[in-house]
Amino acid sequence: MDIDEEKIDAAVLALLRLTLHDERRAWKGFDWNAMERLHRKGMISDPASKAKSVVLTDEGLCQAEELFRVLFARIE
């Protein structure tokens, strides 16, 4: 199966929104490769640290909010 990593990254970024705390920190319990790609794209801080969470950048936070709405909000 050919996997679209862009879609995976979008879903992971949206799901990081679920674990937000301290305004922009999120638990980093997702696929390591996806987290590294999000870091390279400038969406999150470096996941290769001892911290149990990452910090979403301004752009990452905005995109996470938008993707969360697009992927998970009910359409009424």
Rank of each mutant, 00 (worst) to 15 (best):
F68I: 09
S53H: 01
R69P: 07
A48T: 12
F72A: 14
D58L: 07
K52L: 13
L67M: 12
M35R: 00
L15H: 03
L16K: 04
L20P: 04
R69Y: 14
L16G: 00
Q63K: 14
D46N: 11
L13F: 03
D9Y: 04
L16M: 13
D9E: 06
N33R: 04
H21S: 11
L38S: 01
F72I: 12
K52C: 14
S45V: 03
W27S: 12
D2I: 07
L38I: 00
G42P: 01
F30L: 08
I3Y: 03
A14L: 02
I75S: 15
K50M: 11
S45H: 00
S45I: 03
F72E: 13
D46Q: 00
A26F: 01
K50L: 15
A34Q: 02
G29E: 09
E59C: 09
R37I: 03
G42L: 05
D22P: 02
V70D: 11
F68G: 14
K41M: 11
V55W: 08
E5Y: 13
K52S: 15
R24W: 11
D4M: 02
G42I: 00
M35N: 04
A48K: 12
D58N: 07
I8R: 04
D58P: 01
N33F: 02
R37N: 05
D31A: 06
A34D: 02
M35A: 09
L67A: 10
M35E: 06
R40T: 04
A10R: 10
D46T: 01
A11V: 08
A10M: 11
R69I: 15
L20K: 07
F30W: 03
L13I: 01
C62I: 14
E65I: 12
R69S: 15
L38W: 02
W32N: 08
R25E: 10
T19D: 10
H39G: 02
E36T: 03
L71A: 09
L71C: 08
G60H: 01
R40A: 11
E76M: 13
R40Y: 05
E65A: 14
A11F: 00
C62Y: 14
I8T: 12
V12S: 11
F30A: 09
E23R: 08
E36F: 05
N33Q: 09
T19L: 02
I44T: 07
D2G: 13
G29I: 06
F72C: 14
A10Y: 04
L56P: 02
E59N: 09
R25I: 01
E6A: 02
P47V: 06
L13V: 08
E23W: 03
D46W: 04
L38C: 04
L15R: 12
A11N: 10
I75F: 15
R25V: 00
A11G: 01
K50P: 08
E36S: 05
E36Y: 06
A34L: 00
G29L: 07
M43K: 05
